[in-house]
């Protein structure tokens, strides 16, 4: 029984360096893997489509996204823009869309219209009427966004465009 002679002080002097090294490596790994540009994509179950083009946004380029959940709640950059409990209050969304339209590059054929596409992301069972409402807002004077992209999920092995 040598326990009494055991000095607790010596045990405290454990070498921390390898552990700190590993922890720093882990932090760097997670920092690299966390893509902050994906933050404006809400967690939704998208429908599957075979002929979709892959979505590879340029992180430097401005890209407007509208998320609509199963109940019609519209979220843009984690902020609520339309609450289905307050029907027909689309003012906030319309103001946002007209801001968005102003930031877009003008269309090549008709410079009076915005030329970029608005990405609409919905849950697979979101009633389409909510999307139609957003489309309606896009048609207003001062907005006039006419290019859309509907977000879908692609199968594991995407079929090549025929």
């Amino acid at each position: 029984m040598n326990l009494t002679k055991h000095d607790p002080e010596t045990e405290m002097e454990m070498d921390m360096t390898p552990m700190i090294d590993v922890v720093f490596l882990l932090i760097i790994f997670f920092m690299v893997i966390t893509d902050m540009s994906q933050q404006d994509l809400e967690d939704l179950t998208l429908p599957m489509a075979i002929h979709a083009t892959k979505d590879t946004p340029d992180p430097k380029k401005f890209r407007p996204v509208v998320n609509i959940d199963i109940n019609g709640l519209i979220k843009i950059k984690r902020q609520e823009y339309f609450d289905p409990d307050e029907p027909d209050d689309y003012k906030k969304l319309r103001e946002h869309l007209s801001d968005v339209a102003r930031q877009m590059e003008p269309d090549e054929d008709d410079p009076t219209l915005p030329g970029d596409a608005l990405l609409i992301r919905c849950d697979e069972t979101t009633p389409f009427k909510h999307v139609q409402k957003v489309m309606e807002q896009c048609g207003y004077k001062g907005v006039q966004i006419w290019k859309l992209e509907l977000a879908v999920s692609v199968p594991e092995k995407p079929k090549d465009q025929e």
Binding site: V23, A49, A52, D55, L150, V154
Partner: peptide, 30 residues
């Protein structure tokens, strides 16, 4: 070490694996 661990936990929690999304192009009546 405390701060480092907190940072580590933060990044682990906020991590959402990048899922590949697709998009379908469509237009509105111009």
């Amino acid at each position: 070490i405390d701060v480092t661990f907190l940072l580590l936990i933060f990044f682990m929690c906020t991590l959402k694996f990048k899922t590949l999304e697709g998009k379908l192009a469509a237009y509105l009546p111009k």
